Amino acid sequence: MRGFFLQNKTGLKERLENNETVIVAEGYLFEFERRGLLKAGSFVPEVVLEHPELVRQLHEEFVRAGSDVVLAFTYYGHREKLRIIGKEDQLETLNRRALKIAREVADETGTLMAGNICNTTLYVKDDADAIEKCRSIFKEQIEWAVEGGAEFIVGETFADPGEALLALECIKRYGRGLPAVISMSPFAKDTTYDGYSYGDVCKQLEDAGADVVGLNCGRGPATITPLIKDAKLKCKGPLACLPVTYRTTEKQPNFQSLADPVTGQKAFPVDLPAHTCGRTEIREWAEEMKALGIQYIGLCCGNASHYLREVAEVYGRSPPASRFSTDMSQHFVFGNRKDNNPYYTETMRNYMVQ
């Protein structure tokens, strides 16, 4: 349908147990904000309510680029976030609609469909009331995801190990046996608030029963890599790695800490384009992850289909979007085809590149 190919329809756990790779497109919030369809700051997926057809299109676009998973766009679509913008009464509608869209696209394209929960913004360690509110948020979103046909549940972008463990507990309790993918979001320090290394937290989540553990968001390819390597040393099962697509550095290790190279002001979130990775960087990072044996691989904030295609091709895929992969041999100036005018090509090349 619509030029797609039907993919391998075995489940997540079966693929991973067979040492297969699962490629996952994330980054819906930032892409829709870039398109003017949700607000930076609140980052609530209102586009699901207002333009569901565009959500479907982006799911399809990511599948064409190589994603094995259609991730329901319910990230930050939870009760607390909708309360902030005064739309809590549309909470269930948003979640069920997002799940329905994702299920339909997954069915049409032969991909897996995942439900999505995330950091609640409410979690406070040792605060019983806050923890119970978080539990309630996870419970309702997980139950809707199960009813909506999710094949596994992603719990992601947790800063506190306690909230990640709570999310996992809720998936195991309310998810009716669905696999759980749980990932932490590393920020400026190489440890969590409590001083734990991210590798140690991943091991703790794995021991608690998560089917996949790892890292997503926060850091770009350059600075997430040392942390996932540490997790690889400590964990036995499959790991997830989904960085943002920004050039984070040792001095500015996460994308919230990046400074605009011209003004020196904080770049997050609206001036991040000055720090975007090149496709070559994404490809080289994907090659390193493949060599490391990362099975659940993808990209988070800043992701776009041309980036994801690089990852898919490194992992040996030829998705429909590969038909349009770069071929500079056809360029009228920089190409080397014999049917290009050699005099014109050389003249223009010298003119354009001194």
Results as ranks from 00 to 15, higher is better:
82 L>P: 06
26 E>R: 02
272 L>P: 09
95 N>H: 13
118 C>M: 06
184 M>E: 09
149 G>S: 04
6 L>W: 11
350 N>H: 14
75 Y>V: 08
293 G>W: 00
250 E>L: 06
87 K>S: 02
110 G>I: 04
135 R>K: 13
107 D>W: 02
70 V>F: 02
219 R>S: 10
219 R>A: 05
150 A>H: 11
167 A>E: 05
148 G>F: 10
131 I>E: 14
314 V>W: 12
70 V>Y: 01
125 K>A: 14
324 F>N: 10
14 E>L: 00
222 A>E: 15
338 K>V: 12
219 R>F: 08
142 I>C: 06
57 Q>I: 00
309 R>Q: 15
261 P>F: 08
303 N>P: 12
73 F>Q: 08
185 S>R: 11
16 L>G: 10
84 I>D: 13
174 Y>A: 04
12 L>K: 06
90 Q>T: 02
294 I>H: 10
316 G>S: 05
203 K>R: 15
54 L>R: 15
83 R>F: 07
39 K>S: 14
9 K>W: 13
350 N>W: 04
324 F>W: 15
214 G>R: 03
124 V>N: 08
279 R>N: 14
190 D>A: 00
229 K>W: 08
109 T>A: 03
291 A>W: 08
112 L>N: 09
337 R>F: 00
338 K>R: 12
336 N>I: 09
131 I>M: 10
284 E>A: 06
22 V>R: 12
88 E>T: 05
179 P>N: 05
342 P>M: 05
230 D>M: 02
314 V>H: 05
237 G>F: 14
162 G>P: 00
271 D>W: 06
13 K>S: 12
244 V>H: 02
108 E>N: 10
189 K>C: 03
44 V>L: 01
296 Y>P: 12
79 R>Y: 01
282 I>Y: 08
144 W>N: 11
290 K>E: 15
65 A>Q: 07
317 R>H: 15
128 A>W: 02
86 G>H: 07
122 L>W: 13
342 P>E: 11
273 P>H: 08
318 S>G: 00
332 F>N: 07
319 P>G: 08
309 R>H: 12
284 E>K: 11
75 Y>K: 02
262 V>P: 04
321 A>C: 01
44 V>N: 07
346 E>P: 05
261 P>E: 11
122 L>P: 02
211 D>R: 03
341 N>T: 10
332 F>H: 11
229 K>G: 07
161 P>C: 06
99 L>S: 10
2 R>S: 13
215 L>D: 13
59 H>L: 03
111 T>V: 04
345 T>I: 02
123 Y>Q: 03
191 T>W: 09
56 R>L: 04
319 P>T: 09
51 H>Q: 15
127 D>V: 03
17 E>Y: 03
112 L>Y: 13
212 V>F: 13
210 A>N: 07
328 M>R: 09
345 T>V: 07
7 Q>Y: 13
24 V>T: 13
46 E>M: 10
131 I>N: 07
203 K>G: 04
99 L>H: 05
151 E>R: 03
212 V>P: 07
347 T>W: 15
299 L>N: 01
241 C>K: 03
270 V>G: 05
136 S>R: 11
62 F>C: 04
235 C>I: 04
337 R>D: 15
67 S>G: 02
109 T>N: 04
329 S>D: 15
73 F>M: 09
21 T>M: 04
323 R>K: 14
100 K>Y: 03
